[in-house]
C-alpha cells in the first residue's frame, strides 16, 4: 500500500511529508502520505479526481487552513522546519511557498499592480519596478506586456493571465512553487508555453504540480506520485512510473484503463 518512509538520502529534502493525513470533517481525503521532494525537482501528482492530490498540495503552503473543518495529522516540513508547529505563521509559509491555481485568477487591476501586490503587502523595500520586470521576464511574459503594464490584467488572454499569475507568485521570491492543474483551463499552445516555463523555472525553484494530463506529467516532471483514494500508491522517478510501474493500479491509470 503506502510506501513506508525510505532511508533518508544525504541531500536535505525541500519538502517532506511524514504520514500526512488530511481530514475534512469526518472524511479522510489524504491517508498517511509520506513524500520527499529534493531541491530543483519537478514533482507531478497524478490520480483520478478526488484522489487527494490537490488537498496534499494545499497542505504544503497551509492554504488548507482556509477550508473550514479541515485538519491534518502527521507532519509537513519545509527545509526541516515543521510547517504545522506552534508559532509558524501561515503568512510567512505562503510567502516562501508560492502557489498557482487551476483557473487563472488575476486581480482586476493593472498588469503591474498584479505583480506588485505581493511585494507591497509583504513590505518589499527594494526597487519595485525592477522586481516587477524581473518577475515578468522570469514568467516569460515581459516581451508581450512591457508596453502596456497599466492595462487591466483581464484584457490578457487565458494563457497570458496564467503566466501573469506565475509572475505574481515569483515576485515574492518563494523557494517552492505549487501548481494546481495550471494548464487545465488553457489551450494546447498556451499549455506548451507554461510547460516550457516550468522547465526553465526548475533552475531556481522546486516545483510541485498537480495535473490530470498524463503526457504533461511525463513531459515536465522528474518524479511522479500516483495517488488513489487518498493513498499514495506509487512515488518514484517519472521515467520509471511511466515505463515500468511497480504497482498494477499505477499502470492501469496511466494507460487509461480507469480514472
Amino acid at each position: 500500500m503506502t510506501a513506508e518512509p525510505t532511508l533518508a538520502p544525504v541531500s536535505a529534502p525541500v519538502i517532506e511529508t511524514q504520514r500526512l493525513s488530511v481530514f475534512y470533517g469526518a472524511t479522510e481525503a489524504v491517508k498517511s502520505v509520506s513524500i520527499k521532494v529534493e531541491p530543483n525537482q519537478v514533482v507531478a501528482f497524478i490520480g483520478p479526481s478526488g484522489c487527494g492530490k490537490s488537498t496534499l498540495l494545499r497542505c504544503v503552503n497551509r492554504m488548507n487552513d482556509l477550508v473550514p473543518g479541515a485538519r491534518i495529522e502527521g507532519d509537513v516540513s519545509f527545509r526541516g522546519m515543521n510547517l504545522y508547529a506552534d508559532g509558524v505563521d501561515p503568512i510567512e509559509v505562503r510567502r516562501r511557498i508560492g502557489m498557482v491555481f487551476q483557473k487563472p485568477n488575476p486581480f482586476p487591476k493593472s498588469i503591474y499592480e498584479n505583480v506588485a501586490f505581493g511585494p507591497r503587502i509583504n513590505g518589499y523595500r527594494g526597487d519595485l519596478e525592477a522586481l516587477v520586470e524581473k518577475s515578468l521576464r522570469h514568467a516569460a511574459l515581459w516581451e508581450e506586456v512591457k508596453d502596456r503594464l497599466t492595462v487591466s490584467a483581464l484584457s490578457l488572454s487565458g494563457g497570458q493571465q496564467q503566466r501573469l499569475c506565475i509572475a505574481r507568485a515569483l515576485a515574492i521570491e518563494p523557494e517552492v512553487l505549487l501548481m494546481d492543474e495550471p494548464t487545465s483551463a488553457l489551450d494546447p499552445i498556451a499549455t506548451q508555453k507554461i510547460e516550457e516555463l516550468i522547465y526553465d523555472l526548475k533552475q531556481d525553484y522546486t516545483i510541485l504540480i498537480v495535473t490530470h494530463n498524463m503526457q504533461q506529467a511525463a513531459r515536465v516532471s522528474d518524479e511522479t506520485a500516483f495517488l488513489y483514494m487518498g493513498h499514495l500508491i506509487e512515488f518514484g522517478p517519472t521515467n520509471q512510473i511511466f515505463t515500468n510501474p511497480a504497482e498494477e493500479r499505477t499502470e492501469a491509470y496511466i494507460t487509461g484503463r480507469f480514472g
Partner: peptide, 15 residues
C-alpha cells in the same frame, strides 16, 4: 467577489 480572488491574495502571503 469570486473566492479565487481571495485565495490568490492569501497565497501571496496577504493577511
Amino acid at each position: 467577489v469570486p473566492t479565487s480572488i481571495r485565495l490568490g491574495s492569501y497565497a501571496l502571503g496577504a493577511t
